[in-house]
Design a protein around this nucleic acid. Structure first.
Lengths: 336, 336
DNA sequence: TCCGTTCTCTCAAACGTTTCCAATACCATT
DNA sequence: AATGGTATTGGAAACGTTTGAGAGAACGGA
């Protein structure tokens, strides 16, 4: 495991180490003959430049921090997949961390990233509060928030238009004939969920529907939570024809509870999700949902961040993408 | 974004920078009084040591490379989740890459890791050939293979006993009364799949069953592939009562094809998977499967790697865990 | 008062690159 | 043969930290 350094190569080639450096990096001012000779020699000696030393002098690690709440969540792992692809295409690598949805952890990880001198960080925030928790740390490293709408905050973020997505969802159900639509699972402390809920209410108003909302203080986006909440819900008479779930994972929990109660989807109840996680496309599930364009989201986040880094802009940009409804088999047309 | 260095702090504190270093790192040979004063000052000045510079002199980055074929695959993202947890508990971070199941990419990434000077790498290999492709690179950095059985190869790996898992799977089905069990989806070029297939054959022999195997050259572990292959399969008469799928993702594809054909699972056909990916536990799916203990797998991989790194052992270790069957609802008892 | 000891702190080297600037070699032109 | 110009190479500083060796101060005992 002994490290072969540029000096070893220089000595073997009988040149100075600046020459070797030039040969490897493809900079001009070196004859083709020596370059070829040195490159050849490097291969023989198994020399690869030490990226740490390079980072030191270049003041750039070519590393991007990626802080997610939970990489095993399908929405995030899919995002991570695309982020890695885009980052690598542009010469960067990803250092990945899970914040476990804890603001404290998140802050710690953010500091860690600063001290590791990654060139920038992409953050899938634990909560909308993340923005304020991180406060003073933010100016110390280029950052883009991903997924969460930060409204007018002076920080870059890339997110889907959650308000509009929810609006479109209601619209979609309305056109199928639904007039009594229950919104399921508004989560506190998340601007994403606030906006979705707002969009739902706005659409209801626009279409003359009376909104009905299943709020809850300690909402979580897990399948389990959706299941538990749905159990309670189904214990009461069903005075709605469709449920609009705040997230796909919640919707999955609803499916399970419905299954157990003998409520058939979509025959007895239409169900619409939000996110379009991959699991929703699974056989036997076929969840109709509002899609977040994950590949686009990911590559815009990377591009946005690299812009900031490479052009040393200190400004910020808000990029908001338009969602769309993807139809599968959990919603059906009805006549009331 | 201007970097605060140790010199700035030293100047402000009126001490040399070695003193600051010692104060921060908690080394002895410094009075409590000055230490407290300096630590305080560091906070005020927002000083955090530059990890790159530290890596340079310490000859350790406290970074672990994690090369997976596809982080969006639920099996791998779950593994990654646990790996990050364990690594961070021991003071390391993860740099994540997707090899896209290409040996060439994988090799490139491995070289990248070497040049990045990560302290070690955990590799979920693209193929069992990975071991030989990487060949000369392997001695240059501590590595542990995860998931794939490398038999007697002189390299560390952590994997489940795939042979035994498959054997147990057959045993399980046998005890439910199944006598005609089809093995679905043996993949070439993967020792994991070879072993599973071997285990299946051995168990058939032991229980006096005639093995029936759906081999195929260009097998992929995706849902889509399982679906396509199952479509072909179901076009022919069904002369088996259970399918043992090589992976859960394949099983998911089978479910979809069965659904479309009107084949009910488990009433008409029992289905057993392998891996216990999280999706299998979803409502309406409830896949019975052979479980790989992912959390354990992950933490053993990390521990094994760190052992190697921190004790500078050049040896290798093979750790093989025992799988178990997790029962859900895709298999049922029959009488033939 | 002086010396030895202990405690605290400073100095400087080292880690492996990149790059600016200076120096040399080479070539063609006069 | 001398000169000028250009193409190539070498030297050295710089990046920010850790750490071993050594310097200086404080202190107690003789």
């Amino acid at each position: 495991m002994k490290q072969v350094t540029i000096k070893d190569v220089a000595r073997a080639a009988g040149v100075s180490y600046s020459t070797v450096s030039r040969a490897m990096s493809g900079s001009p001012g070196i004859s083709e003959k020596t370059r070829a000779r040195i490159v050849q020699l490097c291969e023989e000696m198994n020399y690869t430049a030490n990226a740490v030393a390079r980072s030191m002098v270049m003041k750039s690690t070519k590393l991007l921090g990626l802080i997610v709440t939970d990489i095993s969540n399908p929405f995030m792992s899919e995002l991570a997949y695309y982020i890695d692809g885009q980052a690598r295409a542009r010469g960067y690598n990803i250092v990945l961390c899970n914040s476990l949805r804890s603001l404290e952890q998140e802050r710690g990880l953010f500091e860690l990233m600063i001290s590791r001198k990654v060139d920038g960080v992409i953050l899938l925030p634990a909560e909308s509060e993340s923005y304020s928790t991180l406060g003073a740390l933010l100016p110390r490293i280029p950052t883009v928030f991903l997924g969460e709408n930060l409204k007018d905050a002076p920080e870059s973020y890339v997110a889907v238009d959650n308000y509009r997505g929810a609006y479109m969802g209601v619209e979609y159900l309305y056109k199928l004939g639904h007039r009594r639509i229950l919104y399921f699972g508004k989560r506190r402390g998340s601007s994403t969920h606030q906006l979705r809920s707002d969009g739902y209410h706005a659409a209801c108003e626009a279409y003359g529907l009376t909104p009905r909302c299943l709020n809850n203080t300690f909402m979580s986006t897990s399948i389990k939570y959706g299941y538990q909440l749905a159990q309670q819900l189904f214990a009461q008479p069903m005075d709605y024809t469709a449920i609009f779930a705040a997230t796909d994972t919640n919707a999955l929990g609803i499916i399970q509870a419905a299954e157990e109660r003998g409520i058939r989807i979509p025959e007895d109840l239409s169900l619409l999700g939000f996110d379009n996680i991959r699991d929703g496309a699974l056989p036997r599930i076929g969840l109709t949902t509002v899609e977040q364009p994950k590949k686009l989201l990911a590559s815009m986040a990377v591009d946005s961040l690299l812009d900031k880094i490479e052009n040393e802009q200190s400004g910020y940009a808000h990029r908001i993408l338009t969602p769309s409804v993807v139809e599968r088999s959990t919603c059906r047309a009805i006549e009331e």
